[in-house]
Each structure stands twice: as C-alpha cells, then as structure tokens.
Design a protein around this nucleic acid. Sequence first.
RNA 1: GCCCCCGUCGUCUAGCGGCCCAGGACAUCGCCCUUUCACGGCGAAGAUCAGGGGUUCGAAUCCCCUCGGGGGUACCA
Length: 487
Amino acid sequence: MTEVRVRYAPSPTGQPHIGNVRTAFFNWLYARNNGGKFIVRMEDTDQERLVEGAYEGIFDALKWLGIDWDEGPDIGGPYSPYMQSERLKIYDANVEVLLNSGHAYKCFCTRDRLTKLRKEQTDSKADIKYDRHCLSLTSTQIKEHINSGDTYVVRYRVPSSEIVVIDDIVRGQVEWNTDFLDDFVLVKSDGYPTYHLANVIDDHAMKISHVLRAEEWLPSTPRHVLLYQSLGYEMPKFGHLPMILGPDRSKLSKRHGATSILEYRDLGYLPSAVINFMVLLGWSIDDHTEIISVEDMVASFDLKRVGKPAAVFDIDKLNWMNGMYIRSLDNNDLLVAVKNVCIDAYKGRGILLDDEILAKITPLIAPRLKNLMDAPEMIEYFFTQEIDMNKDLISTVGMDDEEIYNALFMSRQYFLESSNFNKSILEVDLRDICTRLESSPRKYFGLLRNVLTGKSATPPLFDVIEILGKNVTLLRIDAALDLFKIN
RNA sequence: GCCCCCGUCGUCUAGCGGCCCAGGACAUCGCCCUUUCACGGCGAAGAUCAGGGGUUCGAAUCCCCUCGGGGGUACCA
C-alpha cells in the first residue's frame, strides 16, 4: 500500500472558517490514523484576491487547534516549494505539453465578449459554456494576435461525449458526461494557473494519495480527472466531504456571524471544544459518544463513517461543549485562562485583580461557565468597590423595607462581631439569624446575596462571603442599610 | 436554465433487510438536589424515517418517480 499523503490547500484570500478548518482536520485525522503525511500547500494563484494577513491567519488557526503539518511553505519538505506562486515554471512545462498534444489551446477572447456571450446564453436559456471561438484559430491568426500584443488564456479542450467516472470515497460512484463541461481556463492572462490546473499538477507532483476536500469541489472533479488523463498522471482517490452550512442552510459566510475560526478563539472558546464540536459535523464514532479526545479521534477516524449530508452549524451545541471542556480543565489551567480574560476585560477600567481571590473563586465559577468570556462579569464584584446594588434589586427578594432593614441590621451586628469568616461557621450562624428573623433561607440569603454582590445569581453565598472578607462585607451592608434607612 | 450532490426529531447524528411503531446528544419543558444561578441526576415532549410507487414473507435501510434543500456553472478558490 502506498503512503497516505493528504493535503490542506487553502488560498490566502481570507480567514479560514469552520468549514475550511474542518476539512483540514479530517485530512489531518486521516493522515495520523494511517501514519501518513499531512501537507499544507498554499494556493495563492489569484493575485487579485490575496488578503494581507490571511497567510498568517491560516497557520495561526491550525496552531491554535493543535493541527500540525509535516510539509508546508514555512517548513518546506521534499516537494518544495509549497507556495503555488513559486511553482509557476512547473505549470508552464505542463501547459506546454497540453498545448502540443492538442489538449489545450490559446484563447484571445476578451472579457467583454465572454460576458456578452454568457448573457446571450442566459437569456436564451441555452447552456452556459464557452463557444470555442478560438479553438479554430489558425497558427497565423494566433501569431497575429500575439504580435499585436493581445493577451490570452489557455483553455482545456474538453473531449466530447465522454463519460467520466470517479469512485468517491464518501459518495460512491459519480459520473459526468463531458458534453456538459465547457473549455475551462488553465492559465489566466496574467500567466498564473487556475486552481484546476495547479491543483492537479501539484497533487501529482507532491504524490498526494487522497484528495479530501469539501463537496463544493465535486462539480469540478471531472475537469481534474480529464487533466490527469491528458497529462498521463495517476489519479489520487477523491473524497468529497460534506459542507458546513449556516443556520439558514446556505454556505457559511460573513452573514452568519463569527465566520473565522480565530474569532471563536477571541470569543472565549477552547480549542479542544471547537475541535470536538467540529469533528462531529459529518463524522461520528458510534451511536452515543459526544466527548472524544483527539487521541481517540485519531485512533478511530474512518472515512467510512463520514456522512454525506451537509451539516448545519449549531452554536448551542458548541456552547454546551465549551462548558464541558471548561469543566474538564484542571484548576490551574482554568485559573490562567480566567486570569487572562479578566486582565483583558478589566484593562482601562481601573479594576485590579487579586490573585489570591481569583484562585479561590475560579473553581466556584467553573461549573457556571459556558464561555471564558463570561468570567470577568461574573466575578467583578470581588475586585471593585462599585457594585451594581440598588433598592429595586434588593427588594426583589420579597421582603418589605422594614424587614429588609431589620435583617440587614442584625446581619451587620453579626458580621461586626464575627472574628472568623469561615464558610461553615458563617453558614451555621446565618441560618440561625434567618430563623430568628422568622424569614426563609430563600429570602434572607437572597437579600444578602443581592446586597453583597449586586447580583441575584452567584456561587454559593457562604463561599462568597468568606472570600469577600469582613471589611467588604460590612462596607456593602452599610451601603445597603443607608438605602433603607427609615427617615 | 443546465449539471452534480443530498434528504432520519428544531439541530448534530446512530441505523447499512427483521434487534427500530427508530437509539444518543444539543436545545426545550418538568421533577430531584438546593440559599440563588449553574453543574449533576431523573423524566417528558419531539421524526407518519421528504412524499408516492415498487422489490421482498419483511424496508428508514434496495430500485424508480416526484418534491424539497444545497453546490457548481468565473481569466475565484
């Protein structure tokens, strides 16, 4: 069996979105499962659409997710270079072969003519395809065009009435009649190859064994097959992976909100969660397993279990999974992560983090976190004097003003005299106070929670009070007492 | 228009002729735990397996048609 060599061939025309990356990941999994190679090749043949920073973004995304590559433009490899813009000579040589063998021809048609042609065909509901205007050019005519400086493209001459068949790894047998294909462009007028040409030549040159790409490539596969045949190259196996759709079932785009995978990083998602969520879009390990380690993915990845239908991206499930992974983080990792987002969020607001307090509160918020970004707001009251506490919020506990005042007053006395802010002692004592007040835990503890944190939902109250400490506790009780002072 | 792919709960999916009047997960809704919110546990609801024809003793699973969705039809990838 020949070595498995698969590739991820992004073009640096934008930030990779979850669909691109999922495709990359499936390739990676397949390589790792088979002890093969995972190659990154940059398809930068569209000089007009290059986006600054896109190249870096692609590698940042892979690195963030822990997807490593064996060969690539940055690290080289036995089939360098891995940037298509640096492989122009290789394409030229192949084009020469195609031109000489009559499989390709030069086309001098202007874009205007092509646009007009297409419009006519659309209007008359005819097939939209190139009319082979330049196929019949004589060598003298071609010379004339070239002498007068006309630019040209090279087109592939599609044979008529042939049936092209592939045995797709995920879709099974798919066939096309070449009569429905038009003479596609191989080389653009700027001398750069099109995707069709470059990808076939490079996949062959780099000994790619399996072409695993998104389903949107399926329609152009017959062109590639034809090229392999004309060039006399052995064909790789094809596998067209299901696409990932937006909630409206259309191809993922900017309209669908966060589209770049890196945005998920910035939004507080863990790479492990994103990976796990992503792998389940179009693949499953069995009928019930949802949380899967990367090791297990590698060990059990099988193209046979890749599904055919496109998958809709469901942010709810990602959120749930993110929570699962946050909870599975060990204390210290979570602490570091939370600290980082807090530093960021508090920057410029004069809020100072206290490492000791942070270390105590982090384990308590872990089960409450679906996203790292939720943390700063959730624990802000530990680090700032100005909490969002007001009469309306306090009153939601269901006690009238007098009851509130009395409860706070009694609490104040207790806290003032208390010398041991330990949660178990606090719990015993405060429950006792609650009884003496003839209140209910729900009301009384709710009151204290509101007053001490400015929030109606927090980690367990006694933990919170212990961490807050005597000073802050008294300060906040006093502030609340002021609000309910009987005039 | 034409070509190609796809079609199981709202969503991700299991299923590859009898184990399925369809299993798991997210979301939803209850209940339990409980000082709140979560987590966790338990449970409910939710899919005439897109529809219609076949084949078969038997079909979500095989075949055909229809419908629906998506993708492609660029000197973009």
